[in-house]
Write a protein that binds this DNA or RNA. Structure first.
Lengths: 144, 144
DNA sequence: TATTGTTATACTCTATAACTATA
DNA sequence: TATAGTTATAGAGTATAACAATA
């Protein structure tokens, strides 16, 4: 339980500290929220990205998420083993895989997204609706 | 380069995505800022905490930073090897160590903190002074 | 020759359990 | 018996290099 005052304020007020602990807290809430669907907070973004049909290849999907292409292989392996996605060689460029959601994958994606949304709202609970939106906007401006 | 629009917005607008990538960006900037002082973004908070004399033991320091006490051992090993801190058995309770900054440690702490502050300001560059303060306040409210 | 997916490998970070010395 | 520090070990997560198939 970090305090805002006292001698420790010098460290608990740092941006790195705040971002790390905010991320840890979201991780906990997301773990609980997604456990019923058998997926992790790490896997949901992959499902979302695949559903969008934005990435034309595994490699593009990996870049989009800021992970290595070799990590994407392992991620898709587990998602395929769970029956949530299928990989097929791209007929146009057979070096590539076309990755798509199964019917189960689409169902899990839809319900898991709602659960994840709830986890986000719980994290932002201490903030007003307006402040929560400001936080998202600020982070978006930094990452953009 | 994440976009705010297009099919990928569904994933790049998520809180987890925003926090992760903001953290990654701060990590890069901090790595560069602290490299001249021979310490990492992970080690600076330890120095700050020790300087505050808030933790009465290594264990309390570890709790404060949200890391394991066994990780604190390794952290202090490297900081001691760099000549930035010294460990001495607590005369009152000889199971504990009293950890203090060396003169070099105090000098590095002072200058590294300024460099870290600059890195934070650079990260928050896209934000107005007011929005930057709002961001800190919002994160503090969530972590508290 | 370059690129996609894959595999093998190693490296970092962290957590768990067991040991020691003190209390 | 409980606690602080330490050590050894193992488990994630991730990155690097090399390989096969295809362009």
């Amino acid at each position: 339980m970090p305090n805002e005052q006292g001698p420790g304020a010098a460290v608990s007020g740092r941006l790195g500290y705040l971002l790390k602990h905010t991320g840890m807290r979201l991780q906990e809430l997301s773990d609980q929220a997604l456990a019923p669907f058998g997926i992790t907070p790490h896997e949901l973004p992959v499902l979302i990205l695949i559903a969008s049909h934005a990435p034309a290849s595994q490699q593009q999907a990996a870049q989009r998420l800021g992970i290595d292409r070799t990590s994407m292989v392992a991620l898709l392996d587990t998602l395929e083993a769970k029956g949530l996605v299928v990989r097929q060689p791209d007929t146009a460029d057979r070096r590539r895989n076309v990755v798509e959601l199964t019917d189960t994958g689409q169902d899990v994606l839809r319900r898991a997204t709602l659960a994840s949304d709830a986890a986000e709202r719980e994290l932002l609970g201490p903030l007003s609706e307006e402040d929560a939106q400001h936080l998202r906007d600020a982070l978006r401006a930094i990452v953009a």
